[in-house]
Design a binder for these strands. Structure first.
Length: 94
DNA sequence: CAACACAAAGTAG
DNA sequence: CTACTTTGTGTTG
């Protein structure tokens, strides 16, 4: 029987990210806090890095706490510019 | 064991 | 004040 089970941490991160409304942004810290690991903002980034295989999850709505855009990996390629473009497309004022 | 899509506090100037 | 360094966190390679 296959175990469709990734770590709880990763699953929580994805769900929390999926819960971000359109046009809104959330910080890695906020996501971390939401899933009960307020000090694991870095782990949140690591978790998202392995998941943005599709626009299924609005990982581009997760930004840094200091207002920076943060990073964005898609298909093994880092494109912070793409992230910024997506946010702007949703009407997010940086 | 080392690295990473972060954060906050500490050190140096 | 700004810039760089260090420590904490959880998963992946």
């Amino acid at each position: 029987m296959g175990k469709y089970r990734m770590s709880e941490f990763r699953r929580s991160v994805l769900l929390a990210t999926l819960d971000i409304p359109e046009g809104e942004t959330r910080t890695y810290k906020e996501i971390a806090k939401k899933i009960g690991r307020p000090n694991a903002a870095r782990a949140v980034g690591t978790a998202l890095k392995n998941n943005p295989m599709a626009p299924t999850i609005p990982c581009h709505r997760v930004v840094r706490s200091d207002g920076s855009i943060g990073n964005y990996t898609h298909m093994g390629r880092n494109s912070p510019e793409k992230k910024r473009a997506l946010l702007k497309s949703e009407g997010v004022t940086l």
